[in-house]
Amino acid sequence: MSAPAVTTPAAPRRAASESPLALELRDVHTYYGHIHALKGVSLNVQHGEIVTLIGANGAGKTTTLRTISGVLHPRQGEVLLQGDRIDKLAPHQIVLRGVCQSPEGRRIFSRMTVRENLEMGAFARRDAGAIAADFDRVLALFPRLKERLAQKGGTLSGGEQQMLAIGRALMSSPRVLLLDEPSMGLAPMLVETIFTTIVEINRQGVTVLLVEQNALMALNVASRGYVLETGRIVLGGPAQELQRNEQVQKSYLGIE
């Protein structure tokens, strides 16, 4: 992969106070071959915030997350983590810098047990003691997983798989957690459980960028939000303001 620019994988994690912004995208253009998927996306996430990115199918939400996590590289623009550019780094280097993604569609390792899945989450880390502590923390957040530690990931229900996917991402001890559609395909009850847990994770000091189609739930838990339409940010602001915005109500909240 093309990541020669910055090659210190285990760069020291900086104190949260150094830059007010945990994450910032400046005029990011991302392409899939010739398809111009992101047409100048700029957004930022402050330390300790939950920020949500809402939008319809194909608006570029997942592309934005992939650009942040290094799976895709922007052709133009910058991605900054605590003020440092990360847009030329490989995905594993970005994980080492404290950004972890819970991918769309969960993508847990279905043939590994729940415990093995969580251990894979800590793959990039070497601090055994802290990993054990995080393991307990994740199980405290998701008691359901504790009951199923020896069970194969693929035998879990959809909700449990989502818990596992988030738990696995937390095992990398991220400072910025990227969540891609955590409510997808879940019963409303479970969606509520998941969102309550996201708020709890955030309260424990993890900055969250939440991509959602379920705009109602997302704007309820987020402090700020952005609306993405065909690769462009068309609206942004405090979550409550967005909830009152007529256009948002009509397009994303189903209020006529």
Binding site: P91, H92, Q101, S102, P103
Partner: peptide, 20 residues
């Protein structure tokens, strides 16, 4: 373990910080 994770799901393995 990295090989097995990669065999199961390359994208997820990358997201775990595995250098693919």
């Amino acid at each position: 373990r990295a090989w097995m994770a990669m065999r199961e799901d390359e994208l997820a393995a990358g997201a775990m910080g595995i250098n693919l």
